[in-house]
Design a protein around this nucleic acid. Sequence first.
DNA 1: GCATATTTGTCCGTATGTATA
DNA 2: CTATACATACGGACAAATATG
Lengths: 231, 231
Amino acid sequence: MGDQEDVLHKLKEDSARQERTSVAEWTARVLRDRIAEGLFPPGTRLSEDTIGGALNVSRNTLREAFRLLTHERLLVHELNRGVFVRILEVEDLEDIYRVRRLIEGAALRSLGQPPYALDALEQAVEEGHKAVEEKRWRDVGTANISFHQGIVALAGSPRTDELMRGILAELRLVFHVMDDPRAFHEPYVGRNGQILRTLRAGDARGAERVLAAYLDDSQRQLVEGYARKLG
Amino acid sequence: MGDQEDVLHKLKEDSARQERTSVAEWTARVLRDRIAEGLFPPGTRLSEDTIGGALNVSRNTLREAFRLLTHERLLVHELNRGVFVRILEVEDLEDIYRVRRLIEGAALRSLGQPPYALDALEQAVEEGHKAVEEKRWRDVGTANISFHQGIVALAGSPRTDELMRGILAELRLVFHVMDDPRAFHEPYVGRNGQILRTLRAGDARGAERVLAAYLDDSQRQLVEGYARKLG
DNA sequence: GCATATTTGTCCGTATGTATA
DNA sequence: CTATACATACGGACAAATATG
């Protein structure tokens, strides 16, 4: 038995070393992915014992990983009770869209003279259409997120990019508690395409208007469904 | 000797319990304050042993605190070498101002109809003037930071507030390595006052223009001095 | 409301790996 | 290249809080 555990241990160490990260960060990445996939839905309690056993890391290391994810707002930490996958309130959802309006709008407004570097946006729209055709609705959502991350990237600010990555990861938490993912993702692929075309034509101001309408509609639809879901 | 340590321990526990936070967060808060005060200037290495001994917390707990502050970009974590108070590059400074232009500008642009809730801004300007009179230059800097935090707060988004708190904490790291704090703080008290008056008059768009010029000048002056300082 | 079991919070000792004088 | 110092990670211990019956 010690043999098999040793093998697992080595594998873990290697995959951590590969990218020169600590085991704690490796653990955080694994958990972050699980949460993003929806494998640990919001509200799930993550037991130190269970997770630590499953991933073969010590409690101390696991707690470091928990801290990281708590700081990213994916987990909440209740003193002496443990950590849970975050359940967003409707107010959180509203704040997320407030931030999106602020940042994504500012990113478009910060653009100088066309033409713009739109490769990432084009790729995201394309991936969105492909996912729609193949009815992979969850992937449609991922492509949409990727598109809006691309919009923010136009501002060329690493810190803003990171903020947005966090915000959109939070948004994913909402998606995972909703059924009918198609309804929340499919309509927006076309609208992203419209934003892209407007930008390609060099009309950043016009794109900003389309974006604003997009965010309003998306928020309305999401808040409506989410409030119903939470009861 | 166990006696005295016990007393310290109890004090620490109580002051943590008071706010219902863990010892790790209490530790992080203490360190954050020390860094903000400039007591640990950029580049300082924080030894697990030394700090842990001084604050009477175990290495495990201290490491949790380090993680938190690393995530806030106040510390950098070099694998197997420890944590250091961050030294900002000129590119960081430029990104910080990029973010400020984006966010503070967007906050002003998001304003609806006047009048606006300007209490926090008025208080910050007043505190700035008082600190100037008494030649407390560092406090002048604090008041200025507080003013711009107030601008962002006008957008009414907790997440944006938090982002800005982090950004401005980073900016403080730069201030602490510069001499002549007066030169970097005093000129801007008046300009904050001008922004405030423009807002009070209901002219958000005009305030945005003043702000943009403010940020350009401030960045230019700071980058210049900082680049010279770094050699 | 009480007693018990479970889980977290914290600390410590130690083995190993890594960086640097 | 060796030695030293230090970070990394683990596992065990016990106290304290919480959950369960």
